[in-house]
Amino acid sequence: MKQYLFLGDSITDADHLFDPANLGYGYVSLLARRPEYTDTTFVNRGHEGFTIERVLQMLRRDGLGGHWDAITLLVGVNDIPVELFTSHSRIPLEFSALYLEVLDLLCRHTSTILLLEPFLFDEPAEYSAWHSYIEKESQIIHDLALSYSAHFVPTDAILRQAARCEGVDAITTDGIHLTTRGNTLLADLWHQAFTALSPD
């Protein structure tokens, strides 16, 4: 039985603590229902509001257990309001250092790490100032993925394009979180990336 661990913020969390299966109602749950993963255990340890620092604190406190066949991390959007609305300057230097430390920990427990690009939609308009920070985070994550032989999974441009084609309300509930359709697209992106790693 393979075991896949998912870490991150509310997009991963998706109210998993209120779900009898403890998977939530987002992309992790959708993946677990796919017939390709019938013999796989999915574990959701996402937490609403988590920044990269909070992920690191959780891993230091709780550990990761033994070996995982794959670990996925999606985090970054909550670091942006810390940058914008507090006196704490985080992006790029601190974000990069914290993310690197998280990767150091993950590498001790798996040989397969998928790093999902943080994303943000074009509406509401108040998020327009956030996009440059998403771009900085994405570049950091992409570069660290190369350094750690992890796998960077692009999401931002793809999800934003889907919102333009299908309508913003079809993909996102508030410019950050995803509808069922949005979560389906995110699950598809994860599945495509993971299948490319292990085509058998």
Rank of each mutant, 00 (worst) to 15 (best):
V82H: 05
A21I: 05
I113K: 02
D15F: 02
T179C: 11
D9Q: 06
L7K: 00
T51I: 08
E166P: 00
P35S: 12
R90K: 12
A32K: 01
K136H: 11
G24Y: 00
T40L: 09
K136I: 15
T180W: 05
L5M: 04
E135M: 10
Q192F: 11
G167Q: 05
F6L: 06
D104C: 15
N183V: 04
S132T: 15
V82A: 09
V168W: 11
E123K: 08
A196E: 10
F121C: 02
R160V: 09
K136T: 15
A97C: 14
D15S: 08
L114S: 05
D143S: 14
A162Q: 14
T155M: 03
R90Q: 14
F6Y: 11
D143N: 14
E135Q: 12
T72E: 01
P81M: 06
L185K: 10
Y127D: 01
T51W: 07
S96L: 12
V55A: 04
P92N: 09
G182I: 04
W68K: 04
L23V: 00
P20I: 09
L159S: 05
D19M: 00
G46M: 00
N78P: 07
V168M: 10
L146V: 15
I140D: 02
M1R: 10
E166T: 04
E135Y: 12
R164E: 15
M1D: 15
I91M: 09
L159K: 01
E117R: 04
L56S: 04
V55G: 00
V168Y: 09
E166V: 00
T110G: 14
A150V: 13
L106R: 05
N78I: 07
I158R: 06
N183M: 07
F119K: 02
K136S: 15
I176D: 02
V82E: 11
E101W: 07
L84W: 06
H151P: 10
M58H: 08
L93N: 11
R61N: 13
E126N: 12
T180D: 13
E137R: 00
H47G: 03
D9M: 03
S128P: 10
I141Y: 02
G182H: 04
L98Y: 10
I91L: 01
D19N: 13
R181F: 12
L120T: 03
S96A: 14
R33A: 06
D143W: 14
G26S: 03
H109T: 11
H131W: 09
Q161D: 15
T86P: 03
G167M: 05
E135H: 12
L105W: 08
T112Q: 13
D156C: 10
T180K: 07
D62C: 03
L185C: 08
G63T: 09
V43M: 05
T179G: 06
L84N: 10
I80G: 01
G167H: 04
Y27E: 01
I171G: 03
H16R: 05
W130S: 08
H16I: 00
D122M: 01
I171D: 03
T155Y: 02
I11F: 02
Q192V: 14
Y148P: 04
R33D: 07
Y148S: 06
A157D: 15
